[in-house]
Design a protein around this nucleic acid. Sequence first.
DNA 1: GTACTTGCAAAGATTTTGCTTCCAA
DNA 2: TTGGAAGCAAAATCTTTGCAAGTAC
Lengths: 148, 148
Amino acid sequence: MQVEKRVSRRPLEQELVSRGVRMTRQRRLLVEIIQSAAGHLDAIALWQRAKEQDPTLNKVTVYRTLGMLKKHGLVDELDLMHLEGGKHYYEAKTTRDHIHLACTKCGRIQEFESSLFEKLKGQIERERQFRIKVVRVEAGGLCDRCQG
Amino acid sequence: MQVEKRVSRRPLEQELVSRGVRMTRQRRLLVEIIQSAAGHLDAIALWQRAKEQDPTLNKVTVYRTLGMLKKHGLVDELDLMHLEGGKHYYEAKTTRDHIHLACTKCGRIQEFESSLFEKLKGQIERERQFRIKVVRVEAGGLCDRCQG
DNA sequence: GTACTTGCAAAGATTTTGCTTCCAA
DNA sequence: TTGGAAGCAAAATCTTTGCAAGTAC
């Protein structure tokens, strides 16, 4: 199996600096919010939080920063089964991939880690000679609380 | 493990009729294209194919028909890692879920079936008491042809 | 100083909605 | 016949682009 490239555990800001990315006031703020966010943020939610601290920060800057982070593989982009519209959600990439379970009734998002998932990735890389850079697993259905 | 609800192997049209869905000329055509399509179609591509046979068919009807099929669980909605924009792709739902591998270099989409994937779904349902209605696995990376 | 980044406005892409007319059952 | 579906136009939602002014290194 391919050795998975690990994302540094250092804060995103340090990671970016070490990659030669210019750190602006705006990027510092956005990156800090993404890192400390409890849940999954979409671009507009991120923008709204950022504006509390920097009211001049433009929405476009949010999209550009997210694009930059995505290009560097430092955030994962999620759809969460499009529970509400076609927007995307972002989370800082951790060392271990996880599965998102989206309840179609209450909207709750759970995360799930599994060694089976790791094995599945290994199987894909081996059997198809496919080098996985990013993988997304999302399930929609009813969570334990929402069943009959 | 939960017993998976199986989609009938009958053509989509029959399936819809048996569910009491009104079959119009437009729906018959769209459903036939989706079923016989080789790859994964987005709404506009589906519309363009449909217009060849029925030039009056409106784009909105395509969106509404896809929404109806999705609601009935008869198609899967995919993003294919947003290789080209934010659109969605659709495929007729088969009895067995599969994983989509999207090559970020050449754009090729491969499908991958695995008993590990089935096991993983079982694990999720068991350990989280989560009743999976739809699940989507998409991996982005380099396919065998695009490495080295 | 210079190349990269931001803000602003505008455009682009995709999908949804309101309403009238039409048609399948 | 009658409730649901289609067509049309317009709007809503999410994201990207062009360009002038600003800023990190």
